[in-house]
Each structure stands twice: as C-alpha cells, then as structure tokens.
C-alpha cells in the first residue's frame, strides 16, 4: 500500500527522515534504509538540508525505492527556478517517486556556501500550486502532458513561530493551493502545539489535510542548546533541557522525551500521524516506534 492509500484509509502514519551524505556514497543511504523498512510508512529525504551540498534527494529516493522503502522527496525553492523544478519533478515521477514535500528552503548563508546565489523563483505555496498543476496534466506554460504525474503533495507548517495567526493563514493558503498532507516542525513545546491544533480543528483544516506532528529525538543536551541558539523558529521547553542535563544516560533520556511527546500528540484531535526526524541518529528509529506503540 502506498502512502496516498494509507492517508486516505485514515490509518496512523509514521514518517521518518534521512539526510543524504556529503559524498557520492550511496551505501550510506542503503544502510540507513534498513532502520526504516517495515517501520516507517514513508521516509523524507532532505534536499541540501541547511544549505549544505549533499547527495541529490531524487537520486537517494531511487536508492530507497530499490531498498523497498517509500520515499518522500523534499523540493526546495532555494536551488531551482521554475524550469528546473518542473524537470526535476517529472524526472522524479519517471523514477517512481510519488510523494513530494514542498519547502521554501533555508537561506544560503546558513550553509557552507554562503556566497551562493539563492534562487527563490517560487515560494512554497506557489510550488505546491505548481505540483498540483503538473498533477492535473499541464505544465506551467499551459502545455498539456501526455502522461501526468500523480504526486501526493506535502507541505510544512511551523506552529511555534510568531505571528501565530499568520501561520494559520499560511496553512490555509497551502491547503487551498493543493497540499494533501502537512508535516510540522519538531514539537518541543506540547502545550503550544495543543493550542495550535485546537485552532486548526476550529477552522476545520484537519479534515482537508492529514497533519503529521514532527518529533525529533535528540542525543545530547548540546543538540538542544545548539538548536535553540542557531535554528530560528524552533521553541524548546526549558523542562527538556534540564532533564537532558541531569540525565546520566542522555541517549536513553532523549528517547524517553521523544516517546513522551509522541504519546501526547498522538491523542490530540486532528493528528493523523507523526513525522520522526532522527537527525544523524537514524538507528534509534526502531526503538522509538516500538516504545511508543505506534506499530501494533
């Protein structure tokens, strides 16, 4: 069963995330894929995450398909103009990729090539609309295609950044542009997330898209502190930082926190799944899924 059918059938979705290596070593992807096979319904593949040049997400997706894991390619607007976006999407569809997550992309000065030119020809909402248009059988120029791709369109949402109302407006826009599922930023503040979800349910948006809550297991307190300092738009409760500091076994504590967050968000109204982002720690994925009883 592909991700589209799983979302339509209403079952609880578990997504993972793989960061491709900064080399041409495809075996890294193959090795990481084994942590997700049979555990995650689909796996995101980041597209030059944090503006650092990595193995292409579409090439990694092909490797994952060979390994029997369903990929979700991330597509950012930072590196491509509308021509490249269309050709990459068609190429991905030809290789058998069925899911795409549309993002604006981190600004180039965050990465290791800060002197690069950012493209930003489209923004994420327009990218979603572009994929929707390709799905309907037309290219952006209006030319009809003989064979249309069938992408499941994903989008991102950040419930933790100000201004909060604008986030909901943007979510509405993305849904109207044609998004099928939403992945949120990692939850480190369940209370704020609950408030956001209540607003989403109030507006009836949870019926139009499948909302997958982001969860990020962390290895050490340093990761949390670095995220708080360097990644804007992420909100981390002091409680978690204190717990990680005090813990004798930070890795076990990190898993415990992730499982706790999963169990909190799982029971919220309107949540259709979780998106687990084990950043540089893919091997922990089976443990987390097992401990939080996501796969009965």
């Amino acid at each position: 069963m592909i991700l589209k059918d799983k979302i339509n059938s209403g079952q609880f979705i578990v997504c993972g995330e793989i960061g491709p290596p900064q080399s041409c070593d495809g075996d890294v992807i193959r090795k990481k894929a084994q942590y997700f096979r049979g555990i995650a319904d689909a796996v995101n593949i980041t597209d030059n995450q944090t503006a650092i040049a990595r193995l292409s997400s579409i090439a990694s997706a092909k490797i994952l398909l060979e390994e029997g894991v369903e990929p979700i390619i991330q597509m950012t607007c930072r590196d491509r103009n509308r021509l490249a976006i269309q050709s990459d999407l068609l190429g991905a569809a030809a290789l058998g990729v069925r899911n795409v997550l549309c993002l604006t992309g981190d600004y180039q000065t965050f990465g290791d090539n800060p002197e690069a030119k950012g493209v930003f020809d489209l923004d994420s909402t327009q990218l979603i609309a572009t994929v929707a248009k390709l799905n309907s059988g037309y290219l952006l120029s209006g030319r009809e295609m003989k064979k249309a791709p069938e992408f499941l369109i994903g989008a991102a949402a950040n419930p933790f950044a100000v201004p909060f109302e604008m986030r909901l407006i943007r979510l509405c826009k993305k849904i109207r542009a044609g998004a099928h599922f939403i992945q949120t930023q990692p939850v480190f503040d369940p209370e704020l997330f609950r408030n956001w979800m209540e607003r989403v349910v109030e507006m009836g948006l949870h019926e139009k898209v499948a909302i997958l809550a982001g969860v990020m297991p962390v290895k050490s307190v340093n990761t949390l502190l670095r995220m708080r300092a360097d990644v804007p738009g992420v909100k981390i409760n002091d409680e978690y930082i204190q717990r990680m500091e005090k813990a004798t076994d930070p890795q076990a504590e990190g898993v415990k926190i992730a499982v706790e967050i999963i169990q909190t968000v799982k029971n919220l109204k309107g949540i259709r799944g979780v998106h687990i982002m084990p950043f540089l720690w893919e091997s922990i994925m089976p443990t987390i899924v097992k401990e939080s009883d996501l796969r009965n």
Partner: peptide
Amino acid sequence: CPKRLRNGPCGGTRADG
C-alpha cells in the same frame, strides 16, 4: 524579504519577530 516571499513568512521568524 531576503527570500522575496510573496505568500507569507518562512518558518524561521525569530521569537522576537
């Protein structure tokens, strides 16, 4: 906007706006 976004903020707005 540095990213010239036309449809709303990116996810990176800092807590102080």
